[in-house]
Design a protein around this nucleic acid. Structure first.
Lengths: 136, 136
DNA sequence: ATGCAGTCTGTAACCGTTACAAGGTCAAGC
DNA sequence: GCTTGACCTTGTAACGGTTACAGACTGCAT
């Protein structure tokens, strides 16, 4: 009867920025509670489920995996919110990201160094020769 | 009869640092030429195929996808080595890596900023509350 | 001859999303 | 009512690349 009635999966997708396929996927793996079904079999989403969806999206945006989101939800849905768990997870992720940045930086310099060794005027590509010889 | 006889897939794996499963996969998708088979059905790898494997590994190590390696091989196996193609590919990759670094840096600061807002002494985790509300 | 290690093929899982197919449903316009 | 188009349903498969099985065979050493 309120303005939130008849929110189909398409509406939920538009509001959350998550595709209908992914929403169904989240439901199937138990990450999202199963919404009410109409007589036609359609899913109708409550505000609560929409909020949950927004939260999933927010965690997703900061790089959390679905499994991690599941754990975070378990940690935050209890009586106490286990802020420590959240903080630990955030910092662990930050560390992972940092080390990925480091290796990507090394990779980028290596790529540019290799590219600079390319000399299209020569008969043989020095880079290709190098790649063929060793694993450097 | 030389020292390179009877190089099985396991030997090739140890020499190349690529698992037997991946080697078989490369062969199946046509990235690696099918090696000779013994009467027992075993694959026996020639030096040429081992070299090819090492090259694949080298390209892989600098982040090339198997499809890109296929293209690179086509470009480098022709009569002329198409150094330009290689160089273009390298630089395109470097650009991609650079932009990924940028977004990962933004992600890392966001993660650390969120973590710093965590205050385990409080009743409610500020981060969780924030995640629940908007998609910031 | 007995066992262990290696190899063979085929299949499925991993992660998360996307794209189908084939069928049912809703809402608008006429 | 009837058509049209947009939406929903389920199930299945693909994407990339690796890993892990299962069940059967082989090589080599003791």
């Amino acid at each position: 009867m309120s303005a939130t009635t008849s929110i189909t999966i398409g509406d939920a997708a538009r509001r959350s920025g998550i595709s209908p396929e992914s929403i169904r996927h989240y439901e199937r793996i138990g990450l999202l509670p199963s919404p009410v079904r109409g007589d036609n079999g359609y899913r109708y989403f409550s505000q609560e489920t929409l909020d949950r969806l927004a939260t999933i999206r927010a965690w997703r945006d900061i790089g959390m995996s679905l499994d991690e989101i599941r754990e975070l939800s378990a940690a935050t849905e209890g009586e106490e919110m286990r802020c420590e768990t959240v903080q630990r997870q955030l910092l662990a992720h930050a560390d992972e990201v940092r080390s990925r940045i480091q290796s990507l930086k090394a990779l980028e310099s290596r790529l540019r160094r290799l590219a600079s060794e390319c000399d299209p005027s020569r008969d043989e590509c020095p880079v290709v020769r190098q790649m063929g010889r060793s694993s450097l």
